[in-house]
């Protein structure tokens, strides 16, 4: 590998045009986020709050006088936690089971897992809405959680599958030969081996859940998650306190993900 790096033909000097191009792409990617952050400090109090008229922290203070906005954020966290736990449970059992056993219908499950990943989200949204209405499940937190489980579980399974592909069944056999029962074997042998995969799969499920707009839009009933609250206020012109909360969320998620990422890299390096 080191040898190959040295003989790379076009790794002679950083390309000026390439660097400029990459910088403009990053500018493109971050531009609307800068706009949101800037607007969250905007002292302009007249709709549509766009022209910048000086700096203020007012919106961050106002944020705490807006219980509807804060409770929508609470709903988002609740749905994300519940659906992540469920999809990690279902996904871990499925990924290990599919890795371990050969059975009839395995290829069918395999194919079905790709449906929520490949079809446009709006299809999953309206089809879940139709079925919830058909069997008269009242729409709200429960239907939100179920729907989020439906689209995030396949991603958990795919993440774990990559992890399991290099995993040897003989460890489990050894544990069982030495007298451990199934549950002990799973808890002390299988689980520690696949834990990094479970963590990154769970993180992915959580991220997908808190960002989801389209599926939640159809199955929420009267419950508002944060993205749906944002959707509502975009239609009436986003009040800058939504920008303030978004800025705080960006800071929070960046912090959390950086922490977990460094944690993941550590456990990855150990095994």
């Amino acid at each position: 590998m080191i040898f190959m790096h040295n003989t790379r033909p076009d790794r002679t000097r950083p390309h000026l045009i390439g660097t400029l191009f990459a910088c403009s792409i990053y500018l493109f990617l971050f531009l609307p986020i800068f706009v949101v952050i800037l607007n969250s400090f905007n002292a302009n109090k007249t709709k549509p709050y766009a022209t910048f008229k000086g700096f203020t922290f007012e919106w961050y203070i106002k944020l705490f006088d807006n219980p509807a906005l804060l409770s929508s954020f609470g709903n988002t966290l609740l749905v994300a936690f519940a659906s992540t736990v469920l999809s990690v449970l279902i996904g871990t059992l499925a990924a290990v089971g599919m890795h371990r056993y050969k059975f009839k219908g395995k290829s069918a499950i395999d194919a079905l897992l790709y449906i929520p990943v490949v079809i446009p989200e709006i299809i999953l949204g309206i089809s879940l809405l139709s079925v919830f209405a058909w069997v008269s499940i009242p729409r709200g937190l429960i239907t939100l959680i179920l729907s989020h489980v439906a689209f995030s579980t396949p991603f958990v399974i795919f993440t774990l599958r990559a992890r399991l592909s290099g995993y040897d069944l003989t460890f489990e056999e050894a544990a069982m030969d030495l007298g451990a029962n199934r549950i002990k074997t799973f808890a002390y042998v299988t689980l520690p081996l696949i834990l990094p995969g479970i963590l990154s799969g769970g993180l992915l499920a959580f991220t997908l859940s808190i960002d989801d707009v389209i599926i939640s839009y159809f199955v929420n009933g009267t419950v508002k998650t944060f993205p749906l609250k944002v959707m509502e206020s975009i239609k009436s012109g986003v009040a800058p306190d939504v920008n303030a909360l978004s800025t705080l969320i960006l800071l929070g998620t960046t912090g959390i993900v950086l922490l977990t990422q460094s944690g993941l890299f550590k456990s990855e390096a150990k095994s």
């Binding site: 990617l29 609307p32 706009v35 549509p48 707009v213 993205p227 978004s246 960046t254």
Partner: peptide
């Protein structure tokens, strides 16, 4: 990283940038 800000908010960012 831009993914960690809600996609709607970012689209709204574009709207207010171009408005």
């Amino acid at each position: 990283i831009p993914f960690w800000t809600n996609s709607l908010i970012r689209i709204y960012g574009w709207k207010s940038f171009l408005g």
